[in-house]
Structures are given as structure tokens and as C-alpha cells.
Design a protein around this nucleic acid. Structure first.
Lengths: 325, 325
DNA sequence: GTGAAAGCGCTAACAG
DNA sequence: CTGTTAGCGCTTTCAC
């Protein structure tokens, strides 16, 4: 592999001149420039990023930590974040934690080892204290780690309200929702608190099942939802995230209950699968495009030392009306 | 950030000794080792991977290039490949090409710039010649770039045969399949040739629609499949990849056709969404776990200079019987 | 066993 | 305008 020295030698100039020519920093005579270009051509020279990285102590890589890339919400988010980063000249490292806190820790350590310049995290298996000790660029998705770490999340309260109002207006009197354990204090869990509150205010009976989503596999949701539908037989409305909601719909239909006539179902996230259910699922849409842009914008500001960002950024949600409500 | 020099100074040893202690290479007296460990503790020293990378001219990163991470097959594959790489001590860089050949080229160039040590590619927008020029570790998924580049793919012929036999045995007489343009010469497209052949042999009429899947968005599939179902009204069997198949099912049901009584549908890939359709979709399962392992195994062998791998590796497929056939 | 020194490929500062 | 030089932080000979 040809190095900058080989180019300099062949072009009869110093390495500094080649570097300047390459990066457009400082003056280079047209003549020298021409010879350098020729040498680069001839040698098939490509700058070695590894050396650049060492010099400027930057890798140009941002890590994105998600529980499971196979979950459609995180797949979409990862895709969009990767696109934003690409536009801004950064590369994307992907990290699946699959609920294993060791992995999450390993990936966080890459900040110290200078493997990534920053991390956007949507995983939650580690204790807050671990994050608070870190003094490098981190942006959190749907989790508040305290003043030091910026967080970005949807307006989940509004999401819960929209969901509740949708079911209420559709005439539900006895609804069921699946929430994350209330021990986990995340912005996203607020939708369930709000949902419950609104339902109560309107005299609708609401049952909240708190679950720990051990893993985010379809297979798991499928079995779990089937079991739950056997337990809660008299409900007329359901609110939970898309994948779970889709499996609820299937389980309900298998039991002969008609949707939306007998049971209304409203999902959350509005990922592609809402078009796959029969009927098409009503869902609260998170604006993953804006979330991604804000995540990338914020992490790059942190990396580049620009303090000019809001610590908490809330992104609007919207009702995407389907035929399941 | 403390460097190895600081550690050496504090421990009263040379940097070489610290390096040896850190990497377990060469002898270090117990006494020196102890002082070094203490210094590392006290300084909170972490080795800078960037410097290591430059020295050994390796980044420890493998890039995985996919058309669209949001497509469930690639989401699963990416997840599994990331897991394998993690087990082997490598990191994963993710690259969505979204059908843009510029992006694919940009990511390939990272090989030359030493940003990634190798690339596993499942994208196809560039011409073969571009790949053939590259002299670095590349493993291709479902595409034959010629003798230089190893390829890994499912036994798609068997897949096509299984699909055909399933529809035939279910009594279909007039089936429809969606294939990639026959101009694109990929192993995965062989399933449609085989499918057609088997159907013919059994006196079953088969219509093959060749499509260019412009993008892999749910929205696109949904509209496209709806239109196709309006055009092909008299068919009694369909074979296509899961996502498309799922939307076919929905479009058919919307037109009042019963599945599987009037039309049988068989998918390909067997990703999670087969459990979401109603009825549960029959599909040909690709063994993504084994595909991922082989991809990782092969790319790491190439990176580490081990020539001991097969150029073409074919992974078995299996029929996953659902209720749509 | 261990320190000193060279060098991975690049950039930036500094004389000319 | 341009060549020389000194590192970025680490690993690895190679004498002592």
C-alpha cells in the first residue's frame, strides 16, 4: 500500500505539500499540485484513515446501541440514524444488547478506547450510575440519565392521551394496556400513566398489565399475547406497542372475537407491520425521522464541542387511524 | 487522557514493559507488574485503540452492506452477523445502500481507507467489475462476483422446489410468482426458475412476474401487491418473499378471496411476520443463523490470511408449514 | 527482565 | 509556496 511518502517522493515534493494538496489546507502551486495528482494516480494512493484517526484522536464513527435490531422500531430507527450520519460524513457502528448488560457495557467502553466518538443509546439494561460516570458524548433515547446526558423522546404523554381518546370515542368501556414495569422510569412509560388517567376521567375501566419484555422476538410476543388474551376475556379495547398489538389481534380473532366490532385495538410506534394486520391497525406514530435527526444533530454537536443543544428534546406524535378502532 | 507513557513514568518502568504487561507478551517481573497495575488503576488508563489500529493496520471492524436495514430479512441477518462478530471480538459497521450505488461505492472504499478490515455485502446496485477490482476481504451474500470473491447463499433451488411441491400437492393449477428481473443473475433468483420448472413438469400453469424491487419499503409492497392482485384474478396459488406474500394475502382477502381455500400463498425467508398474517403464512425458511456464521467465519479467515475456506457455501432451507397453503 | 529507540502514516508548525 | 521535523500512542526489535 502506497503511503504519502511514496507520493511525495514520486512527485518530488515534501510530505507536507502532499498533505496540504490532499486536504486543501494551505497553498500549493499549480505545478506541484499537478505532479502530486499524477503520482497519486499512478500509485493508486488512498489516504490511510487509521493514521488520520490517531492524529486527530477521532474515529468518525458513532455507535448506536439498541436492544434488538430485529425489532421493527429499532430497525427503522437504526436505518434512519445511519442515513443521517452518512449525510454528515460519519459512519455507524451497530450494537445489539439483546438484554445482556455485559454487552451494553462493552459497547460503552468503546468510548474510552476511542473506537467510537459518541454513542446514541436506546438500551436500558445497565444502571444509571454507569452512564453518569461517563464523560464522553452520549445521547439517550427514551431514558433520562440525569442532567449530564441529553435525552430525546416522543411526546409520549400526548401519545397516551391520543390512544385513550381514540378508544373512548370508539365506545370502549373496559380496556387493557400493556406497560413496561413501573419500576423502570422512562419517558416512554408515561404514555401508560396518561392513558390510565384519561380513561379513568372518562369512566372507562382500565387494566394495566406490567410486563418485562425479556426479549423482543416475535415468537415471544406471539405466545405471551395469546396467553394474555385467554386471561382477559371481557375487555373491549387494547393499547400496546405495534408488535404486541398485532399478536393480540390475531389471538383475539382466533378466539372468534371481531375487530373492531367487539374489541378495538390501538398500537404504538406505527411501524410497517400495521399494514399487515387485518384489519389495518390504528396506531400512534412516532416520528422516527425527526427523532433520528435530533439524535444525530445532538451527538455531533457534542462530539464537535458545540454546547448549543437542548438537554431534553421532545418530538411530536400523531394518530394514524386504521380500521382496528 | 492518560497514555502508556504516563503509566510507565508513574510505575518507574519503560513503555515497552507496560506494553508487554498489558498484552501478556514477553516477560515482566511480578514486581514491575504490580507497580504497573497500580499506576493503571490510579490513572484510570485505557489503551487507545486508534494507536493500536495504526500500528497493526487493522481496525477490528467488519462492514455489513445491506439494501435496507428496515427489511425484516436484512434486519435479522444484520442482528445475527453482529452477534457472531461480537463473539469473535470484532465490531460491526452498518451500511444501508437504499439502492443508491454511490453509497455502496462509498462503503466499499472504506476497505481501501482501512476503516473496515472486511465487508460482507448483501447489496447489488454496483456492477460486478467494481467488486472484481478489489483486493481485500469481501464476502458476498446471494451474489456471484466470480472466482475471487467467496459467496454464501441458501439452497434456493431446493427452496423453489419445496415451494412448487407445496402448492402442487395442495392442488393448485394456476400459480403466480414474483421474481427479480432475470437480467439480475443471482443465486437467489434460481428459486423462481426451479419453481417454474417443477410446476411445468406437473402440468401446473405458472405466471412469472419479473419485478425490480425499487425499494424495500412496506408501503411500496403494499401498493404494488394490491395492483397485481387486481390484474391476476384467476390464480389459485402465489409464491414470493414474505413481505410481498403478506400483502398479497391482505389484498386477496380484501377482494373476498379465501386463503387457503381459494388461493394458497407460500412465502420465502420465514421472518417473524409470517406469524402476523391471518392465517399464519407457510414459508420457506432460510437459515439465517448458519448463513451469518458462515459469513463471519469466512470474512475473518480472509482477514486473518487463512485461505482455508470454500469459495461457495450453500446453506440448507426448510419448509415451514403454516395455514396459508 | 527491561529500557531505549524506531516507526506505523498522517498533520501541523516552522523556518526558509 | 514548500521541505523538514516533531509528534499522535502504541508495539516491537535489540542491546544491556
Amino acid at each position: 500500500m502506497a503511503s504519502i511518502r511514496d507520493v511525495a517522493k514520486m512527485a518530488n515534493v515534501g510530505v507536507g505539500t502532499v498533505s496540504r494538496a490532499l486536504n486543501g489546507t494551505g497553498y500549493v502551486s499549480a505545478d506541484a499540485k499537478k505532479r502530486i495528482d499524477e503520482a497519486i494516480q499512478e500509485l493508486g494512493y488512498t489516504p490511510n484513515e487509521l493514521a488520520k484517526n490517531l492524529f486527530r484522536n477521532r474515529s468518525g464513527i458513532v455507535g448506536i446501541v439498541v436492544p434488538n435490531l430485529e425489532h421493527p422500531f429499532f430497525a427503522r430507527l437504526s436505518r434512519e440514524i445511519e442515513s443521517c450520519l452518512y449525510e454528515r460524513g460519519y459512519k455507524t457502528m451497530i450494537c445489539n444488547t439483546i438484554g445482556i448488560s455485559n454487552r451494553e457495557k462493552d459497547y460503552l467502553d468503546m468510548l474510552d478506547r476511542n473506537i467510537v466518538d459518541g454513542i446514541i443509546t436506546g438500551a436500558h439494561s445497565l444502571d444509571d450510575s454507569v452512564y453518569l460516570k461517563i464523560n464522553k458524548p452520549i445521547v439517550a433515547l427514551d431514558r433520562d440519565f440525569g442532567r449530564k446526558i441529553p435525552l430525546i423522546h416522543s411526546d409520549h404523554e400526548k401519545g397516551g392521551r391520543l390512544a385513550a381518546m381514540t378508544l373512548i370515542e370508539a365506545g370502549c368501556k373496559n380496556v387493557l394496556q400493556f406497560a413496561t414495569s413501573s419500576l423502570v422510569h422512562t419517558p416512554s412509560n408515561k404514555r401508560h400513566i396518561e392513558f390510565e388517567k384519561i380513561c379513568r376521567e372518562h369512566g372507562v375501566r382500565v387494566t394495566t398489565v406490567e410486563t418485562v419484555w425479556n426479549n423482543l422476538e416475535y415468537e415471544y410476543f406471539r405466545n405471551a399475547m395469546k396467553d394474555y388474551m385467554d386471561i382477559y376475556e371481557d375487555i373491549d379495547g387494547i393499547f400496546t406497542a405495534d408488535v404486541a398489538a398485532a399478536f393480540c389481534m390475531n389471538a383475539l380473532k382466533a378466539k372468534g372475537r371481531r375487530i373492531p366490532q367487539e374489541v378495538k385495538v390501538i398500537g404504538y410506534d406505527a411501524v410497517g407491520i400495521i399494514y399487515l394486520t387485518d384489519p389495518v391497525m390504528t396506531s400512534i406514530a412516532q416520528n422516527t425521522t425527526e427523532i433520528s435527526q435530533r439524535c444525530v444533530d445532538t451527538i455531533l454537536k457534542m462530539i464537535e464541542g458545540n454546547k448549543n443543544y437542548e438537554r431534553q428534546q421532545i418530538v411530536d406524535v400523531a394518530l394514524l387511524k386504521g380500521d382496528s378502532t
